[in-house]
C-alpha cells in the first residue's frame, strides 16, 4: 500500500532527517521525495510504501502528527488513492 506523507510549514534544518528517521524506524520505505516552496510555505511530499510497516496506519499517522507538533510543522499521511482519484481519470 502506498501513501503520501506531506510536511508543510516554515523551513528549518533537519526536517527531512527527522521525518525519514521516523519512517525508517517503523519499516516504511521512501519511494520518492520532493520539496518546494509553494506560496511561501515549505512543502515536502514523500511517496512511501507502507506494506512492511511495523505498526498500524493510525499509529503511524499519530507518530507523524506528534513529530510535527514537536518541530512546529504540519505532517500528515494519506493513502495515495485520494490523490490518484482526484487528479487522474
Amino acid at each position: 500500500m502506498r501513501a503520501v506523507v506531506t510536511v508543510m510549514g516554515k523551513d528549518r534544518t533537519g526536517i527531512i532527517a527527522k521525518t525519514s528517521t521516523l519512517l525508517a524506524e517503523n519499516g516504511v520505505n521512501i519511494l520518492d521525495i520532493a520539496q518546494t516552496i509553494l506560496q511561501d510555505i515549505f512543502t515536502m511530499t514523500m511517496m512511501v510504501d507502507i506494506e512492511k510497516c511495523s505498526i498500524g496506519f493510525d499509529e503511524l499517522a499519530a507518530k507523524l502528527d506528534e513529530l510535527g507538533r514537536e518541530i512546529g510543522l504540519e505532517i500528515r499521511i494519506q493513502h495515495s488513492d485520494i490523490f490518484n482519484s482526484m487528479h487522474r481519470i
Binding site: V4, T6, D32, Q35, T43, R76, S80, F83, N84, H87
Partner: peptide, 14 residues
C-alpha cells in the same frame, strides 16, 4: 514524484 505532482498533492490538502 510518482504519478502525482507536488502541486496536485498540495491542491488536495489545501
Amino acid at each position: 514524484m510518482i504519478n502525482i505532482s507536488s502541486n496536485e498533492i498540495v491542491e488536495t490538502i489545501k
